[in-house]
């Protein structure tokens, strides 16, 4: 039984290989980019605008407002990263309605790659916001004893991110695969619907968690400001 689309390899040359994960990822990327390009081609600033433009505006503004709700002061700075995380994971889940498709997020390699991106992005945004020294200082606060725990927390939450998404997506695909062998009709459809819902929820959870981590890295400066204000 194939647990991950990584195992389906179309082409290999030494270390380089072209497996189903990468191919389906490209497909998702292609859908997202071509869709975005098609819609944004005819953007208008008039009061009357196309339905697709409306849809995209709603999606983008919803993401922006979510980022703001998490507590990030300048949401447009983080929009590209967090928005893309959400859209990629959501689109990967949505494409499960296409027969023969395996969600790339069902591969631990993909989720690990995303988690690593978050792992790198969090300190990066933190440093951008409060400088290298200021960010590194957050690891030894309130005392330097906290340093190992902070480091462990960084690694463990990255691992949790990767495994949570992988587990959910993989299990969805797995359940459908198993159900197809037992009851070929109706049930797989219901489960696909459930899978779609799970995929959307996971996309939301993944991106919100990333936003919270970034907010935590950025926001630590605020308590320092507090005493200065009367």
């Amino acid at each position: 039984m194939r647990l991950s689309p990584d195992q389906l390899i179309y082409w290999q040359h030494g270390f380089f290989k072209l497996n189903a994960t990468i191919v389906f990822t490209w497909m998702v990327i292609l859908i997202l980019i071509v869709g975005a390009k098609l819609i944004t081609r005819n953007l208008t600033t008039e009061h009357k605008r196309s339905r697709w433009q409306n849809l995209l505006e709603i999606v983008v503004m919803a993401i922006v407002s979510q980022i703001k709700d998490v507590g990030l002061r300048n949401p447009k700075t983080y929009l590209s990263f967090l928005g893309t995380l959400f859209l990629f994971v959501a689109m990967s889940a949505l494409c499960t309605i296409i027969p023969g498709y395996d969600p790339p997020t069902g591969s631990l390699s993909t989720t690990a790659a995303l988690a690593i991106c978050v792992l790198v992005a969090v300190p990066m945004f933190g440093i951008m916001d409060q400088g290298m020294k200021g960010y590194l200082k957050t690891y030894i606060e309130p005392t330097f004893i906290m340093l190992p725990f902070n480091l462990i927390s960084e690694v463990s939450r990255t691992l949790a991110l990767a495994v949570r998404l992988f587990g959910n997506m993989m299990s969805g695909a797995m359940i459908i695969g198993i159900l197809l062998t037992i009851t070929p009709f109706i049930f797989p459809i219901v489960m696909t619907l459930l899978g779609l819902l799970t995929g959307m929820v996971q996309a939301y959870i993944f991106s919100i968690l990333a936003a919270v981590y970034i907010a935590a890295a950025v926001r630590t400066r605020e308590p320092k400001l507090a005493p200065s204000t009367p």
Binding site: T21, I22, L108, S109, A113, L114
Partner: peptide, 11 residues
């Protein structure tokens, strides 16, 4: 379960 080439490519 983890293929490091795939991880790098996906990143």
């Amino acid at each position: 379960l983890i293929d490091w080439f795939t991880v790098a490519a996906q990143a």
